[in-house]
Structure formats: C-alpha cells, structure tokens
Design a protein around this nucleic acid. Sequence first.
DNA 1: TACTCGATCGGA
DNA 2: CCGATCGAGTAA
Length: 200
Amino acid sequence: MPEIIPPEYWQRRTTLALARNLLGKFLVRANGEARMITEVEAYDGESDLASHARAGRTRRTAVMYGPGGTWYVYLCYGVHEMLNLVVGPKDWPAAVLIRGVEGCHGPGRVTRALGIDRQLNGTKSHPAFGLWLEDRGVKVPRRLVHATPRIGVDYAGPVWAKKPWRFYFDPAELPAAARKRAATANSSRPARRAKRAAGS
DNA sequence: TACTCGATCGGA
DNA sequence: CCGATCGAGTAA
C-alpha cells in the first residue's frame, strides 16, 4: 500500500499545488524512519524576492533550476540544515521548504531529527539516495489546510513577504480513518526496528 | 579579498 | 532579546 512517489511526479506545474500536495506525504529515510509532512513553504521563480532564486542562477541556486523531485539542502545561519524539495519543470527555479513533520516543528529541527544535511543536496527523492517521499494513503481534506505568509522573509519586501505560501495542517483534525492510517504508517517500521534491536 | 546577512533555534 | 557560526552573494 505505501507507494514511493517517483521524482517525476514533482516535475509539473504548479509550485503552489505541489506544495499543498506534499502535506500528508511521508519523508522516509533508509533506516526506516518515516515522518508525515505537516508544514511547508513554497518558493516560486526568480521574481519571488523571498526565494534564493531571486539572485538568478548561481552555484548555490543551480539545483533549483534542475528538474523537480531533487533535494535542495543548504546551511542557514551557519547552524541549521534546511531541507527543500525542488519542484516544477527543468529551468523553472522553485522549491518547497519542509518546515514541519508530525511531532516536530521547525525546518532546522526536522533535519536534525532525521539526520539530514547537505550531503543530500542535489540528489533525487529516491531510495537510492537514502531519502525519499511516500504516499501512505493519508488524504488531507482541503478545509484542514491553512495558508499564511512565509516565516522569516521580511527582507523580501511587503509584497512578497505577505504571499500566503506557507501551508500546514493539524494531523489531529484528520478524519478517523486517515488518522489511523497515519498512525500505522508512522509506527510500523520503527516498531519492527525497535523489536529487532531489543532482541539482538 | 572584505564585508554583509541570512527561508533558525535555544538560552538569558 | 541575543549570540552562534559559516558560506553565498556582492562589491571592490
């Protein structure tokens, strides 16, 4: 039932729709850890003054110009690794920042919790690289998805700083069936690992 | 090469 | 409210 989402899925338009689609999907690591995405932020095109791509194509932003389904990981404030998924077709610089997963809020905390760093920058969302996305059957109803301005982008000026491109939802508000699916998906693999570890 | 400033977080 | 901590981008 868990379905690995191929990188190509993220290569279409539009950035905002793909950002919302990311909610309820699972970030999965090679060690079996899986976390449901609950909060994201979209960065779309060079005209978006909050985006790193506002500076155009540079060594740092080159990955954003690549095809969707690629990880963009960078160091923020010299301290925090930030995980983004590049979205959209090749040559359109856009990315979605993973700001939160179930039980873990804050982009810097998400990467720390999952052991993600810049080594993954430029790799695809695919098991071959140790970090990928799965659809585990959790559908997030539209009415549960909230949109607000993005966090920490005042430098972008009033127009772009106010774009309501941060999306999040509360897993506790999911319908019972979806909540159960999310809980099962979250616990199954780690539980098996825990048992193995305890037995050995 | 020098300088500025972060898509943040935790502690005072 | 402030310091940490370092690399990208820009100007020189």
